[in-house]
Write a protein that binds this DNA or RNA. Structure first.
Length: 735
RNA sequence: GCUGCUGUAGCGUAGUGGUAGCGCGGCGCCUUGGUAAGGCGCAGGUCGUGGGUUCGAUCCCCACCAGCAGCUCCA
C-alpha cells in the first residue's frame, strides 16, 4: 500500500500501481474531469502513470487547468499535435526537439520541402482536426535498443542521433502514441488532444540542431496554447501592448535617438532629448562615484594593437572587432592574409597573390618596415605548416605600427595604474571613465539600443590587494543595486557567471579561477541574494556577477556587471609594494553599474514606456497659453522656471489648448502649465500633471517647491497605465 | 554569420506589369480658445540601392544595403 498526502493535508491509502486518474476519480467526479496531470513528490506525471515506490508517504496533487504546471504540460502536448499535423502535410519531415516554453512551445523540424509562414494556417487547420478528434496520448516504453530501431523505422534520424548521443545510459525509453503519430518523448502529456482549448502558431525561424552553429539549421515553429480562448486572447493582447513600449518605436516617436545607415549599423545617434536623459544619468553616476572614492580618468578611443594582444582581447575576439588600423597600408593586407590563413579560408590563388604583393612591395616600396623579404623567406620555409606560416606573418605584423579602435577600456586604465609605482597604502585604486568602445557585433544581433556596435560603458577598474577583494566587490554590488533601485528597475535577475570546465577559452591559472569563483559564490550567498550560477558565462579573464533584465518582448539583456580578475594583472605584470617592502600582484575588479548607457537607456525607455520620471524627463515642464494673447506671460513663467534649473518649453502655436495638451501628454511631458486671463491677473499658473490631470492654480513658488522635491527625491510616480504591462510581465516571469 | 520575412512622403500605412493614394505631421489662411484632436487650402514621393527580364518595372528575377523574428555569438 502507498500513503498519499493530499494538498489539504489529508492522507489516503491506495494500493501500489494505482493510477492518478483513479485517485482523482475517487476524490470527485468534477476533479477527475478537470484533471490534466498529477504532481507526485514534486514531479509532474501522466494521469495514467502508476504510483510506485511508497517508502513512507508520497505527496500527491491532481493538476487542473488552474495550475501553472498543467499549462506547461498542455503546451508540450500541443507541440506534439503540431508535429503530427506537420508530418501529415509535409511527408518526410524529421523531428528534433519540441519542448514547452515559458509562454508557449516550439518544435524543431527538418522538412524536405521548407515550411513557410503561409503554411501556418494550413497546419493550424490540421491541428484543429486533431484536437477535435480528441484522441488520447498513450505512453509506452521500450528497451533502448528497440527504441532506437523504432525511431529509425519511423524515419526520424534526429531522434536516432539523440538516443546515440544522450540517452544510451537509460535502460528503457518512453514514447507517446496519438493515432498514427508516435514520438520519442519523456512526457508527461495531457490525457487527450481535446484538452487544448486554444492555440496559435506564431512564427517560424531557423535554429541549429543541438544549438550548435556548426550543425544543420532546422526550422523552429513557435506557437502557444491555453486551456481557453480567453486566456489566449489576453496573452496576444498583452504581446501587442508590450510592443507599444518597444524602445525602438518610442525612441523614434519621442525623438530620443536615431540610427542612420549613412553612419552605420549599430551606431547610435543621440538626439537632443535622448542626450539629455543620458547626460543626467551620467551626472547621477559621477556624483555617486565621487562619494565612493573613485578617481576620474580619460583615455583615447584607440590604442596600440600590441596592447590588446597583451590583454588577450585582440586574439580572443578578433571576429567581433573592427579590423586593426595599420599605419602602413601593407599591414591591412597582411592582416587579412593572416586572418584567412588562420580560419582555413586561404585559397591557393589568394596565397599566391598575397605572396606576389609582398614581394613587389619589398622591391618597390622603400618605406615598408620590417623586412618583407625576410618574412617571405620564413613563409616559404614553412612549407605546408600552417602554424609556422602564421608565425612568419605575425612576426612581420608585430613590427608594424597598428592600432585598434578600443573594444575595452581596461588596458588603457591598466596603463594609468602602471604610470606610477603603488604602495599597499594607495590601494584600492579606483579609476572611472565613461569609456566609449566599439565591437563589430554580428549583423543578426543588432537591435535598437540594446545591442549595438559602439557604446559607452560607465566603466571603472579597481586595483585592490587580495584582502580588499571582498569589501570592494561587495561595495560594487551595493552600487549596482542602488542604481537599479533608484530607477525602479526591480525586475531583474542575478547571474553568477562561472567558467565552463569543458572550454579552453579562458586565460590564467586554474587555482586563480577556483579562488575567484569561490569568492563570488560565497559573497552572493552571504548576502542572501537570489542568483543562478551559470557555467560558461564568465569573462575570459574571470568570473562575474551580472544583473540581467528583460526587454518588451522578453529578451534578456545584461545591464550592470561586476567582474573579478586575477589574470590581466598578471598579463600586464602589475604590482604594488606591500608592508613587507616586496612587490605583490594586485587583483582587478571590472565593473559597470549601467553596463552600457545605450542599452541602459533603451531598457529605461521600455521600463517607463517613454514617460521618464521628472528628474530624467528631457522636457520637464511645458507652458501652454490659452491663446496667443498670453504669450508674454507664458514666456515670463518659462524664464522663471529655467532660472531655477528646470527644463522648460512653451507651445505658442495658434492651436486650441485641448490640442496642445494632448500633444504634450503624448510626448510624456510631466507637467503642463496652462496660463490665460485668470492666471495672468492673479500671477499664478494652472498646473496639469501628466498622471493626475488638472491640479488647479498654484503660485510659482509653490510649483518650484513641488518640482524641486520631486527631482531631489528622484521620485518615480509613473508606474501608471503605460507601464502596467511591466508589472504584469514581472509577475508572469516571476518563476 | 545562418534561416525566414520586410523596405512606398518626416511618421503610420493602401495599392498596381502602363511612373502612386490615405491618415498624422509640415506650411499658409481663417478661428483667439480654458484642460487629450477647430475649419479650409497647399506643398511634399528617383516606391531602399544597383543590375537584369520586358515595348514598358514601384510590382517579376538577381545582387547589395537596411530593418524585423529566431538561432549562434556577446570581453
Amino acid at each position: 500500500m502507498l500513503t498519499l498526502k493530499l494538498p489539504d493535508g489529508s492522507v489516503r491509502q491506495v494500493p501500489e500501481g494505482t493510477r492518478p486518474r483513479e485517485v482523482a476519480a475517487s476524490l470527485g467526479k468534477r476533479l477527475a474531469q478537470a484533471a490534466i496531470a498529477a504532481k507526485v513528490n514534486d514531479k509532474v506525471v501522466d494521469l495514467d502513470s502508476e504510483l510506485r515506490d511508497g517508502n513512507g508517504e508520497l505527496s500527491f496533487q491532481v493538476l487542473t487547468d488552474k495550475d501553472k504546471e498543467a499549462l506547461a504540460v498542455l503546451r508540450h502536448s500541443c507541440a506534439h499535435i503540431m508535429a503530427r499535423a506537420v508530418l501529415r502535410l509535409f511527408p518526410g519531415a524529421q523531428l528534433a526537439f519540441g519542448p514547452a516554453l515559458e509562454n508557449g512551445f516550439y518544435y524543431d523540424i527538418d522538412s524536405p520541402t521548407p515550411i513557410r509562414e503561409e503554411d501556418l494556417p494550413r497546419i493550424e487547420e490540421e491541428m484543429r482536426k486533431i484536437i477535435a478528434a480528441a484522441e488520447p496520448f498513450e505512453r509506452f516504453e521500450r528497451p533502448t535498443s528497440e527504441a532506437r530501431e523504432l525511431v529509425r523505422d519511423l524515419g526520424q534520424g534526429y531522434k536516432v542521433e539523440h538516443i546515440d548521443d544522450d540517452l544510451k545510459q537509460y535502460p528503457t525509453l518512453s514514447f507517446y502514441r496519438q493515432g498514427e503519430f508516435i514520438d520519442l518523448c519523456r512526457g508527461p502529456h495531457v490525457p487527450h488532444a481535446g484538452k487544448v482549448g486554444a492555440f496559435k502558431l506564431l512564427s517560424i525561424a531557423g535554429a541549429y540542431w543541438k544549438n550548435d552553429a556548426s550543425r544543420k539549421q532546422l526550422q523552429r515553429l513557435y506557437g502557444t496554447a491555453f486551456f481557453n480562448q480567453k486566456d489566449l486572447d489576453a496573452y496576444l493582447h498583452q504581446l501587442e501592448e508590450a510592443k507599444k513600449r518597444d524602445h525602438r518605436v518610442l525612441g523614434k516617436q519621442l525623438k530620443l535617438f536615431t540610427i542612420s545607415p549613412a553612419v552605420g549599423s549599430g551606431l547610435i545617434l543621440w538626439m537632443p532629448k535622448g542626450a539629455t536623459v543620458r547626460g543626467i544619468l551620467e551626472g547621477f553616476i559621477k556624483e555617486e562615484l565621487l562619494k565612493r572614492g573613485y578617481q576620474p580618468v580619460y583615455t583615447p578611443h584607440i590604442g596600440r594593437l600590441e596592447l590588446y594582444r597583451t590583454s588577450g582581447h585582440f586574439p580572443y575576439y578578433r571576429d567581433a572587432q573592427y579590423p586593426p588600423l595599420f599605419l602602413h597600408q601593407l599591414g591591412q593586407t597582411v592582416d587579412t592574409w593572416l586572418a584567412l590563413l588562420e580560419s582555413d579560408q586561404l585559397s591557393e590563388q589568394a596565397e599566391a597573390a598575397f605572396l606576389k604583393l609582398l614581394e613587389e612591395a619589398g622591391k618597390t616600396m622603400t618605406d615598408v618596415p620590417g623586412e618583407p623579404a625576410a618574412t617571405l623567406g620564413r613563409y616559404a620555409a614553412a612549407g605546408k605548416d600552417k602554424a609556422k606560416k602564421a608565425e612568419a606573418l605575425q612576426a612581420w605584423l608585430g613590427r608594424q605600427e597598428g592600432y585598434l579602435v578600443k573594444p575595452m577600456n581596461c588596458p588603457h586604465h591598466i596603463q594609468i595604474y602602471k604610470a606610477e609605482p603603488h604602495s599597499y597604502r594607495d590601494l584600492p585604486v579606483r579609476l572611472a571613465e565613461f569609456g566609449t568602445v566599439y565591437r563589430f557585433e554580428q549583423t543578426g544581433e543588432l537591435a535598437g539600443m540594446t545591442r549595438v556596435r559602439g557604446f559607452t560603458q560607465d566603466d571603472a577598474h579597481l586595483f585592490v590587494t587580495p584582502e580588499q577583494i571582498e569589501e570592494e566587490f561587495s561595495a560594487n554590488l551595493d552600487l549596482v543595486l542602488f542604481v537599479l533601485s533608484s530607477l525602479g528597475l526591480n525586475d531583474y535577475r542575478v547571474r553568477v557567471g562561472l567558467r565552463d570546465p569543458q572550454s579552453d577559452k579562458y586565460v590564467g591559472k586554474a587555482e586563480n579561477w577556483e579562488k575567484a569563483e569561490q569568492t563570488l559564490l560565497s559573497l552572493v550567498q552571504s548576502r542572501g541574494m537570489n542568483f543562478s550560477a551559470e557555467k560558461g558565462e564568465a569573462a575570459f579573464y574571470g568570473p562575474k556577477i551580472d544583473f540581467v533584465v528583460r526587454d518588451c518582448i522578453g529578451r534578456e539583456w545584461q545591464l550592470g556587471t561586476v567582474q573579478l580578475d586575477y589574470n590581466l594583472p598578471e598579463r600586464f605584470d602589475l604590482e604594488y609594494i606591500g608592508k613587507d617592502n616586496a612587490p605583490h600582484r594586485p587583483v582587478m575588479i571590472h565593473r559597470a553599474p549601467f553596463g552600457s548607457l545605450e542599452r541602459f537607456v533603451g531598457i529605461l525607455i521600455e521600463h517607463f514606456a517613454g514617460a521618464f520620471p521628472l528628474w530624467l524627463a528631457p522636457e520637464q515642464v511645458r507652458v501652454i497659453p490659452v491663446s496667443e494673447r498670453f504669450r508674454e506671460y507664458g514666456q515670463r513663467i518659462e524664464n522663471e522656471l529655467r532660472s531655477h534649473g528646470f527644463r522648460v518649453a512653451g507651445d505658442y502655436r495658434p492651436e486650441k489648448i485641448g490640442y496642445k495638451i494632448r500633444e504634450a501628454q503624448l510626448e510624456k511631458v510631466p507637467y503642463m502649465l496652462i496660463v490665460g486671463e485668470k492666471e495672468q491677473s492673479a500671477g499664478t499658473i494652472s498646473v496639469r500633471d501628466r498622471v493626475d490631470g488638472d491640479l488647479g492654480a498654484m503660485s510659482i513658488a509653490e510649483l518650484v517647491k513641488r518640482l524641486h522635491d520631486e527631482v531631489k527625491e528622484r521620485r518615480i510616480r509613473q508606474v501608471s497605465t503605460a507601464s502596467a504591462g511591466l508589472s504584469e510581465r514581472g509577475a508572469q516571469f516571476a518563476d
